[in-house]
Design a protein around this nucleic acid. Structure first.
Lengths: 232, 232
DNA sequence: TCGATGCTGTCGGCTGGCCGACATCGGGGA
DNA sequence: TCCCCGATGTCGGCCAGCCGACAGCATCGA
């Protein structure tokens, strides 16, 4: 589940072998981007692959009515904008910086070449894509089968697994996330997230420390997703 | 969109270069499986990668309450059971034959070796995973933002793009699918699918020919997803 | 030929969660 | 210092879609 931070499973750069990393780093261009800045948007051609060097970014769909469906967050070391690289056909999603960030970009053809000549990097890409596929699969399963209370609870658990670190008996989430963003990840309204989190706080399952979620692991097992509702 | 069948984008075997294919085919074991048979289930270790030679299979999650969330269908040539190969940790999903089928299996370590030594095959895997990631992303977007009518309509369009072939002005779907299965793909009830399809049939957007959906393309543009509801 | 079984079609009643609406709180810029 | 704006917290009304229920209608094996 949660684990010390240096190498999250999604940290592409860290997990890349030293030699491969050195080669890749010679191919990238570095760029700063401020909070709220768009890195790419749906419809653009998608010429590059990106890596987040510092900060935080989010990848999301935008529906015709302006509703945002948030697929995942990127933390430092993560690769994104990958999907369009091999398949082409333009960007389908938006990438936006959630904080002041630095990104590294590589031309897609160059990156494709890099993968073709560095098999272990290609395997790592496959691994990262597999993880995301699993993760989206779980979201779909939940959106189809679970009520909002359960979805919020499991979202927190997923975030903890991907972006959390242990502090004594607790798990702290390393990402900055709003209720609206959580709602966009699980397909419900901001209000539903607010009230569910309020309930979990009342149950002492979690607390908030300077805008970051803190999960009290010792209170977890007692809260089967179903019970929670009963304890209004 | 829809296109003549020989090479669907998801047809891994077809798209693999002739030489790579020959090598791969020497590594596989062939096995028959009857309609309804489980190829693998969640929780099992996941030692193999599979290819569908003939028939049809479905990949799905099963929630604790027995609800099925259907992620995708496999037609001949498609690869599946791939996600667990690189990342390990056991199967997360179920794979079940929807018809009498033949499958080819390869040990995961052997397949990993194959990919490491055949870069273009690895690129193809990345491409296939990217397509699925996109597809699941769209499902999530819709489940978050669209009502049932729209979801059903877009599901049909997606199925047509992946599994359809042109017949004059129409598109015929090559897969066998029940209303329940469609409901499981978009997170609604069987009844909602039935009534929405009934509506689309009344609008002459589609018809049914011996259990296969047939889309009348000339009737499509007039039916913006929103209008449909108005035409009860 | 005849049940058995699974899919399709249709109908009300009920409710989880959406949608406004509004009040409060806190941090950052002028 | 104050103001502004985005985020959080709370409430009531309302409705899309779920649920149960049941009636055709094919397909299949005996």
């Amino acid at each position: 589940m949660a684990h010390g931070s240096p190498s999250r499973p999604s940290n592409f750069i860290e997990r890349l072998g030293g030699d491969d990393r050195a080669v890749l780093m010679r191919l990238v261009q570095r760029r700063g981007i401020e909070k709220g800045g768009i890195i790419f948007n749906a419809g653009s051609p998608g010429k590059n692959v990106y890596f987040l060097e510092s900060g935080q970014a989010k990848i999301y769909h935008l529906s015709a009515e302006g509703r945002e469906a948030l697929l995942w967050f990127c933390l430092p070391g993560e690769i994104f904008g990958l999907t369009e690289v091999c398949h082409g056909g333009g960007r389908q999603v938006y990438a936006q910086a959630c904080e002041d960030s630095h990104i590294l970009s590589v031309n897609r053809a160059v990156f494709k070449d890099f993968l073709a000549t560095h098999p272990s990097a290609a395997m790592l890409v496959i691994d990262v894509l597999s993880c995301r596929l699993r993760s989206l699969g779980h979201v779909i399963e939940e959106m189809a089968a679970s009520d909002v209370t359960e979805r919020v609870f499991h979202l927190i658990m997923r975030l903890a697994a991907n972006y959390g670190h242990r502090v004594g008996d607790d798990v702290h989430l390393d990402i900055h996330i709003t209720h609206q963003e959580m709602a966009n990840m699980i397909g419900c309204t901001r209000q539903s997230v607010t009230s569910t989190l309020g309930m979990l706080k009342r149950l002492d399952v979690l607390s908030f420390q300077n805008h970051h979620i803190c999960i009290h692991r010792d209170r977890l097992p007692s809260v089967a997703p179903g019970d929670a509702a009963a304890a209004h």
